[in-house]
Design a protein around this nucleic acid. Sequence first.
DNA 1: GCGAAGTGGTTCCGGTTGCAACCAAATCGC
DNA 2: GCGATTTGGTTGCAACCGGAACCACTTCGC
Lengths: 159, 159
Amino acid sequence: MPAAKSRLTDFLPYLMSVSTNAVSDMVAAQYQARFGLKIPEWRVMAVLGDAGPQTQRQLVGATRMDKVAVNRACKVLEERCLIQRSPNASDGRSHHLELTPAGRAVHEEIMPLALGIEKRLFAVLSVQERKDFKAMLARINEQVCKLESLQAADTDQKS
Amino acid sequence: MPAAKSRLTDFLPYLMSVSTNAVSDMVAAQYQARFGLKIPEWRVMAVLGDAGPQTQRQLVGATRMDKVAVNRACKVLEERCLIQRSPNASDGRSHHLELTPAGRAVHEEIMPLALGIEKRLFAVLSVQERKDFKAMLARINEQVCKLESLQAADTDQKS
DNA sequence: GCGAAGTGGTTCCGGTTGCAACCAAATCGC
DNA sequence: GCGATTTGGTTGCAACCGGAACCACTTCGC
């Protein structure tokens, strides 16, 4: 018997990518169908609804999206009158973004939908498993950050 | 105390997406830096090296990529003389794709690199945890497929 | 056999993404 | 205070991606 070959289907980054894409596509399809919102737009609304008015910079931190993506999502949401900008007294470059009443209404509808989707998707995991899964994702995340900083140090050294 | 707000940072699809993107970016950076290969190209090479000559159709199944993505990856790999096409005697529309000697050489180098990356990335999980994690991903995947088919049935009904 | 339907592969095109350059306002250094 | 640097936000652009139309060949139905 030959040594076990390393198959793509055993490669964890590949498996993560496949599952995550499947989940994301399903979530995106739901939001698109029911509210005409894409995921970046929904993320912005979720954060604004949860944490109140924010600048774009803060949204970048909270959503882990690119600042261009945040900007575009905000533009769309503003055009659809779901959020509004008000000048930032303490910094003339930025604005405070917040949900309009219409935006808040959508937020109140969309959050239960989101939680419902999550519940259905992850119904195959027990409460404990979901908790473990979440914790493992967090640890993997940390590890990536750690490795990234090591690598950056490496290339710094070489240059 | 108000009911716990549903935060984006507790939303599992979001967490999966963040972690997976971080992992994918790191893997992609390594392949790009060392072999000038992108992930779709690497996936095709991994499958060809593992399972021998395949048609594009078979690669679509094995890699879970879009057929356009497979086609493009193959075109690039062929231009770089890492794979070659030979006519398919039993079906004039398709070709058999297989690694060239140069391709095989790269494959032999790249697989250990891939496994090394995987090892470093997932070193924060114990052997048992990795196994559980993998199994959970698979279950989530299945669940998505199940829900997708339900939904398809739904829309069929309505139309 | 031959026309119709199906399938593998390719091309085209519209949409999305993210980097890099840029502008405007704020902060720093002196 | 005033030029130099930094930072929030915006725009431009090039790469990427995937659906849909398309072509070439094969298979099905008769």
